[in-house]
Design a protein around this nucleic acid. Structure first.
Length: 594
RNA sequence: CGGGGCGUAGCGCAGUCUGGUAGCGCGCUUGGUUCGGGACCAAGAAGUCGGAGGUUCGAAUCCUCUCGCCCCGACCA
């Protein structure tokens, strides 16, 4: 593509509403433009990137035995009513009526449609397994779209659905998708982790998120530095403690093991209480009142820890858990938040749960269940006879890995670019997506679903691959492979050499962007850095008189001189080599879900 | 949905408090000088001041309503 003829509007300044780096660079580089909140136009450059990612996904899905289909964006409510999700799904589902008044939605995901498609024409075990996928624009009416392509309302997604005769076969399909996903993200040049995720309401036995590691990520994850275990912090297991998390401290209130009440007027937060009493925050017990399926529960963690609601929910076997509102706290405990503690008297029947780390804790400080007072010298075993223990706190970086027992957790922020899910018969059973097995018995098919946020991959790739000047695309998903910069558009020799290089590379199938504009060199270099094409060739009068061109990889600081003669071959080889590196990475051994 | 902020030329912003001919930088057009990391000079084009209603002799500015966008939080996968 000649830049002089391209629709490639770059910006010197970033749009005011772009906050994260990928949004800024996509907008400045002429990749996307916003149309509405969370809705974007893809300009030619942006669309090329999307198609590159799609193509990798297609190749790997096909390689794994999946078949591509296309389902409608407009889905009749009838199907969603069958699965029960028409009522369950909130305002995130964009609903509308057609001219006859029939209700529809724009599909945010397509389990219902695919089940309808498969059950209609599949009835025998002989027809299974099946794995069908599509690549399509989805719409989720997010409360708060943000961060450009990272969390839009309309986004392009690959969603795949597998259908099998048994759990065992379905899990094999899951593992095949898991492996395909690892190949896809490695081919995209991304640094990622497959992390164990909350199976939540669906209750399946297996779910993994593929998280691209980036500072701007919305998800907190921990990964073992020795083994392959990685998980969302909400889901991460916490190793059983080997010693009590609170022991008597050196001096003052921290050293006390005799229980006593001390005045702490107006000191409500862990931070304030610790400072006021002159004890470390690790000496405190944080007491939080939760409402679990309508009943109050007092949950205890060490002062410096965070309580993990997912873990609490699991420990209680509760369906729904939320932090109690102030009035509910007073109602249940008899004192306002800030002075709540586990040592009686509690006003009502309140179950007390403590994090496993508090077993055997001594010399602790906690709320006194009286206004403006705390207790010191608390001994959990002695003072809390009815307490039950369970892992309640968030996993943290530095924790010992519970899986291998040797490594320690390291903390990361992640951008979720893929999610694989074992569904079981959640949709196939209610929607009667059945098959007849070898014995003639009718059974619901066993399903899995597998998503990749195509447009989010583009954003995540930039979050991970950029510098002060702009984007540094991995070659596999770059809009072009080589950019030729003709430094003096008015110089006949320069333009002839650049043109010859352009023609030669294109004849070899290399994707080339040719900056033939009548601009000053500085402007062209700035634009080239911003756009981020991985290989740049500068054709300038200065080196051309010696028969040389300047080759610079986007990530390199300095260019290297190459001869005009043979430049086409050299560049084509270099492009092939860059691609090969990513393919080799995909072929390298990689962990399995286990 | 709760809290906060912002809508003025394609982009970034000033002007609003204290009403009186709509401005600056970038970009764009034309001419000239330049030409290896976003040049300089000169001349230009371009805005229903988000929209509707009101107050006023007069509204970007004051009042009411409304639409949109961004941020923080809660929510969801």
């Amino acid at each position: 593509m000649r830049l002089s003829a391209a629709f490639l509007p770059t910006l010197k300044e970033s749009p005011a509403d772009a906050q994260v780096v990928s949004h800024v660079l996509l907008a400045r580089g002429g990749y996307i433009r916003q149309v509405a909140a969370g809705v974007y136009n893809f300009l030619p450059l942006g669309w090329r990137v999307v198609r590159k990612i799609e193509e990798i996904v297609r190749q790997e899905m096909d390689r794994a035995g999946a078949q591509e289909v296309l389902m409608p964006a407009a889905v009749p409510a009838k199907l969603w009513q069958e699965s029960g999700r028409w009522e369950q799904y909130g305002p995130e589902l964009l609903r509308f009526k057609d001219r006859k008044g029939a209700e529809f939605c724009i599909g945010p995901t397509h389990e219902e449609v695919i089940v309808e498609m498969v059950r209609r024409d599949t009835s025998s075990y002989r027809d299974l397994p099946l794995n069908l996928y599509q690549i399509q624009a989805k719409f989720r009416d997010e409360m708060r779209p943000r961060a450009g392509l990272m969390r839009g309302r309309e986004f392009i997604m690959k969603d795949a659905y597998s259908f099998d005769v048994s759990d065992e076969r379905a899990l094999a399909a899951y593992d095949a998708m898991y492996a395909a996903y690892a190949r896809i993200f490695r081919r995209c040049g991304l640094d990622f982790r497959a992390v164990e995720a909350d199976t939540g309401a669906i209750g399946g036995s297996r779910s993994h998120e593929f998280q691209v590691l980036a500072e701007s990520g919305e998800d907190a994850i921990v990964a073992c530095d020795r083994c392959t275990y990685a998980a969302n912090v909400e889901q991460a297991e916490v190793a059983a403690p080997t010693a009590p998390g609170i022991v008597p401290g050196a001096a003052g209130h921290a050293a006390t093991t005799e229980r006593a009440q001390v005045a702490t007027p107006g000191k409500k937060s862990i931070e304030d209480v610790a400072a006021f009493l002159g004890v470390p925050q690790t000496q405190l017990i944080k007491a939080l009142v939760y409402m679990a399926d309508g009943k109050p529960v007092l949950a205890l963690v060490r002062g410096d820890r965070g309580l993990n609601e997912v873990a609490l929910k699991k420990a209680l076997g509760a369906k729904h858990v939320y932090l109690a509102r102030d009035v509910e706290v007073v109602d249940a405990i008899g004192v306002a938040p800030g002075f709540v503690g586990p040592v009686g008297p509690l006003r009502g029947e309140v179950a007390v749960w403590a994090d496993a780390e508090l077993r055997g804790a001594r010399g602790a400080v906690c709320g006194a269940n009286a206004a403006d007072a705390h207790l010191v010298g608390v001994d959990v075993e002695r003072d809390l006879p009815g307490v039950r223990f369970a892992p309640l706190r968030f996993a943290e970086p530095g924790d010992r890995c519970p899986r291998c027992g040797e490594g320690t957790y390291r903390g990361f922020k992640g951008i979720e670019v893929g999610h694989v899910f074992f569904l079981g018969t959640k949709y196939s059973a209610p929607m009667q997506c059945d098959f007849v097995d070898e014995q003639g018995a009718t059974k619901p098919m066993v399903m899995g679903c597998y998503g990749i946020g195509i447009t989010r991959v583009a954003a995540a790739a930039i979050e991970q691959n950029h510098d002060a000047g702009g984007i540094c695309w991995p070659i596999s998903i770059a809009p072009y492979e080589v950019e030729i910069v003709a430094l003096q558009a008015g110089d006949v020799a320069v333009m002839a050499a650049a043109q010859a290089l352009y023609d030669g590379l294109r004849a070899r199938g290399v994707e080339v962007l040719f900056d033939d504009r009548d601009e000053r060199p500085g402007a062209k270099f700035k634009d080239a850095d911003l756009i981020g094409v991985p290989l740049r060739v500068a054709v300038g009068a200065r080196s051309l008189k010696d028969g040389k061109l300047e080759l610079k990889a986007r990530r390199d600081a300095q260019p290297t001189l190459i001869a005009v003669d043979g430049a086409v071959e050299l560049l084509a080889a270099r492009v092939a080599e860059e691609h090969q590196k990513l393919r080799d990475a995909a072929d390298a051994p990689w962990g399995s879900p286990s």
